[in-house]
Each structure stands twice: as structure tokens, then as C-alpha cells.
Design a protein around this nucleic acid. Structure first.
Lengths: 223, 223
DNA sequence: GCCATTCTCTATCAGGTGATCTAATTTGTC
DNA sequence: GACAAATTAGATCACCTGATAGAGAATGGC
């Protein structure tokens, strides 16, 4: 949480006046930025390409987001927001939490489907997590750590209770996230290999298989 | 396989003369290129940074490799060669192949350890596989497809024989590779979270856990 | 319907990009 | 030891990068 707010011309204008078409260009810039960053990485993405894809001009980025870096942060925040929405939606009204075997299973299932629907997220994550940088530190503290600790804590508890396999929680976390996301991160590769990993049938089979592999083929497999 | 050979001043000089210090700079450039490409992606990596890291000057890249693109290809070839060497080494003299449950298990184990030792490989793969491009097509046809087909074919066979779980082979491939590589691709992130995924103890626990999860906790777990 | 404010657009900046040309240097071979 | 080929080094190319400045257009609030 830095000193800079997410949006300089902030969404709730404290004292001053207005914005109308501005919101549209902001949104367009965020969407375009996500695609460009996911496809080419932070350094490989060009602000001109982002602006053009958003149907506007390059200096708009600095006007609305101050810098390329701040645009990136806003885009990442936006993306994690969408992830949470998607997970909630897939879980339905009653979120069982990660605290029970059935709840863990339901969350794996929901996460796989959310990850499939937001391939840009794990693409960006995997590009940034590759080398230490200020951006990585920002994203870890703001987004990764809370999720990491939620999952590992619950797994540690389930493991202690003998509900799940005797596997270290960090090993589990990276195996699970890796297994859940690569098929979508690498979707263009899979397509060249002749497989459509973004098809509903694949996603469903994938989610089910992961639950089985990570939690074992228990009777009453939750869902 | 393009019209351009891997090395313009080829290793076996057909008719002409010599090279001596040239080999050293070539190797230094390849090593530096791997790090830069893995850290910043193809487009984000700069030839000047690569040359400087290699202790030489930027035009050397064009002299020895014709272009940034060809340098990248040479570096990737070099890296896959090292992967094969590492896997062979971890497997020991008698490679059991992927054809049996024990062989599959041994290969998973060896692959995890090799992936941990060559984090640049999966970093580059995951960065390239993110968007369709000429480079992705090149790498898929040259390196990915043979490996993909080897693993999926063997799994399909084992599955038909009831030796392994009833899971689609493409689902299995991406789950396995993802689960095996993310901890090392994202090692800098894990370190910020307080975990050293490159430590031998982690690698060993990880490899063992994967075998259990993907092949089940069978008696006589091979190895 | 005005008008200050917000937003957009064009032009431009200094710096970095990959690539090429040319001259200087090193080195294997005779 | 000389000489031609291979390698290195320096200078420079046209182009792209993110950012800024200032003129112009649009718009909410009165």
C-alpha cells in the first residue's frame, strides 16, 4: 500500500467536479493493458500499443495513471478483483471455506474454473514472479501472501487432522497452483499441440482430476 | 529446422580455418542470454545487457548469431540439451522409460529435479507459451511436441491398462508439468514468501509428493 | 448559456533498441 | 615470420520507448 492512491483522478471526487468519457477510456486502457502485459510482460509491453488497442492516444496513460508502472498496478488490482468475483460466482451462495475436505475441494474446483476464465492473471503472475523486482514485492505483499497463507494454513490444519495426505503445505501450494494454471497460461501452446484447453469439457475434466489427485478419491467428493 | 545452421562459424569448420577465443564469447553470450531472456522475456531482454553480462560488446551478438532471434534459438537449444543431460543424470545408467508405473515415477522424480536445476527453462517456456508467435511455433515443433507426445502416449497406455488413474492425458500433462515447475519458475516469489524452493530438502519432498499424487501411494514406489 | 474544469490531442523530448559498416586487432597456417 | 582469414572494437543508423508541455475540445454545474 503505497502513498499513491489507485486512481489519481479518484473515483469518488472529493471536492472537485467530474468525469464521464474519462471512465470509458480508463476502463478501455485497463483492459488493453491486461492483454498487452500478459502477452509481452511489463517491459515488453508498449504504452503506445496499449493506447492504440484501447482506441486512444499514448499520453492518456500518463494522464489517467501517471506512469506505466501505475497503470500496471491498477490493471493487476482490477484483475484480482475479477478473480475474486469469479471464484465467488463459481462457489455459489454458500462459500464452504477451505476448512474442510469438501470445502477445499469446492475451492479447488472454483479456482480452476476462475483461472481458466482469466488466463491473463496467471500469465502476469508467472512473468513477474520470475525475477525479484519492486513490482514483484508489491504484488506479493498485496495479493499473493494473503492467499498463500490462507491456503497453506488450512492445509496444515487438515493435514494435522489426518484429513488429507501428509504433504508439506508449501509443496502443496505450488503444486496445486501450478497444476491448476499451466493449462490456461500455456493455452496458445496447447492449441498448437492440437488441444483446446479453454473448452468447457477440458476445464471440467481438469478441475475434477485435480480434486481427485490432491485430495484423493474419497466417497462424497463435495461440489 | 530452418535454413540457418545453429552456428554460422560452425563447430566443424568444413573448409576454412579457425576459432579459439570465439568459442568463449559464444558460450558467454549463450549463458548471459539465458538469464536475460528468462528474467525479462524475449522482447524485454536487451542485446546490450546480454553482451555486457557476457563481458563483450553488443555487435558480437550479430556477428556470432546473426540476430537476436537466432541467439534466442541457440540459447533454447542449448538449454534443452542441458535438460536432457540432467534428466539422464538423475535417472542413472538404466533409464526405465515412461512405459511402466515405476518408470513413470522415476521420470517424474528426475524431471522435477532437473527442472529445479534449470529454472530458466520453464521460465522461458512459460513466457513464450503465453501468446502465439513464430518463436512459439518453433519451440513447440522442435522441443515441446516430441516430449508432449512421449508422455501422453505412455500415460494413455498405462491408463488403458488400469495401471494409473482414469485421467485424460492432456489434463495430466499440463497438471504434471505445471505442478512440477511452478515452484522453481516462481522461486523469487517463494523466497519473498519466506520459502527456499531451491533447497534440496524442498526439491526432494516435492518430487516425492508429486509421484504420490499423480501415481497414487502404491506399494513399491519405484526408486 | 456561460465558464471553469476535465479531458483529449498533437508535437516533441532524451534515451534506449537491434542492426550494420568499417577499421583495428588477433591468430591459425603455410 | 608473414599473410590472409577470423574476431573484436568503435561509430553510427533509423526506429521505438515512456514521459512531458501546451493547445484544443468537451462537459458538468450554475
Amino acid at each position: 500500500m503505497s502513498t499513491i492512491e489507485t486512481s489519481p483522478p479518484a473515483t469518488p471526487p472529493t471536492t472537485r467536479r467530474r468525469q464521464a468519457r474519462a471512465t470509458a477510456t480508463r476502463t478501455a486502457l485497463l483492459d488493453a493493458a491486461l492483454e498487452e502485459f500478459a502477452a509481452h510482460g511489463f517491459e515488453g509491453a508498449s504504452t503506445r500499443a496499449i493506447a492504440t488497442a484501447a482506441g486512444t492516444h499514448q499520453p492518456q496513460i500518463n494522464y489517467h495513471f501517471d506512469s506505466k508502472e501505475e497503470l500496471w498496478k491498477s490493471a493487476v488490482d482490477h484483475l484480482f478483483g475479477r478473480l475474486d468475483d469469479a471464484v465467488r460466482e463459481h462457489l455459489g451462495a454458500a462459500d464452504p471455506g477451505w476448512g474442510s475436505r469438501a470445502g477445499f475441494a469446492a475451492n479447488i474446483h472454483a479456482f480452476v474454473r476462475a483461472a481458466a476464465g482469466l488466463p491473463e492473471l496467471n500469465r502476469i503472475m508467472v512473468q513477474e514472479a520470475t525475477i525479484d523486482s519492486e513490482r514483484l514485492q508489491w504484488i506479493v505483499e498485496r495479493h499473493t501472501r494473503p492467499r498463500f497463507e490462507l491456503v497453506t494454513e488450512q492445509w496444515r490444519r487438515l493435514r494435522a487432522d489426518g484429513v488429507v495426505a501428509d504433504i508439506d503445505e508449501t509443496v502443496l501450494y505450488y503444486s496445486l497452483v501450478g497444476a491448476a494454471s499451466l493449462a490456461y497460461v500455456n493455452a496458445p501452446e496447447a492449441r498448437l499441440l492440437g488441444h483446446d484447453t479453454l473448452a468447457d469439457s477440458f476445464i471440467e475434466a481438469h478441475a475434477t482430476a485435480l480434486v481427485t489427485m490432491f485430495l484423493g478419491a474419497d466417497e462424497e467428493t463435495a461440489r
